[in-house]
Amino acid sequence: MKILYGFLIVSLMAGFLGAAEAGKITVDGSTTVGPIAKAFAEFYMKQHPGVNITVSESGSGNGAKSLINGSCQVATMSRIMKQNEYEAAVHSEVLPISFVVALDGIAMIVHPGNPIRELTMEQIKNVYIGKIKNWNQLGGPNVPIVIISRDTNSGTYETFETRVLKGEKIVKNCEYVGSSGAIRQRVQSTPAAIGYVGIGFIDSTVKALPVNNVPPSPETVKDGSYPIGRPLYMYTNDYPKMGSDLYLFVNLFLTKKGQEIIEETGFIPVTNY
């Protein structure tokens, strides 16, 4: 255990040194928030040559972990930090501050050739807990449903689990996939598949279904009528020093350009210019 603490202290120190190093920001975390962070990083580095921002996408949980052990300055997360993560952070003398940079809706996607037109929350839940096994139970063709989920590592999964499944367990034959892009890839190439992605990932290769008669769109998520919406977060350790690169980077979402970037990546900005 002592060795472990030793490692922790060393990595913490490395983290502080990293944070102190001018012009370098490391971002890690959610694959959903990743595109926003990447677009922000690209924009910011163009405005401020000499600043180097690296963005990795390893899942919300890993983002929190990296922030806690000091290997990143910004953790992008598609869910709120959990109680035990806060506890671990405080224990490591890290004070997580959250920025809600955008809103997102989780869209149910199927193959474009699928004749299904809409789903209810109840139907989605029943598909994922295994009560509905065939598309003909939903008014489609007689084909077994190929159920695809994000891995349990992701914030999207946890949002889906708490908001849609409400604590019930996913059916055993559900397939797990490592990223939102991979879900879209699987759904666009599998006629019998159903999956869920953030609305930023919707494109013409898949069909996004209305849920409870409400289509997933920025407007419906913002006014609360779309039932599976969520905020997207960036976390920093303590509030960044005013005027620092880190401060400007995490507050980029408040600017007009930031709003445009968020809209371009397909998410819903919290500002309204």
């Binding site: 890993n62 035990n84 671990a88």
Partner: peptide
């Protein structure tokens, strides 16, 4: 023809949320 899960993939896939600090 049915999907399966392996030990290695489980270790790789579940590492992220597995909280080492709290020793769960």
């Amino acid at each position: 023809l049915s999907p399966v899960r392996t030990l290695t993939a489980t270790i790789a896939g579940d590492m992220g949320e597995a909280d080492q600090v709290t020793g769960s």
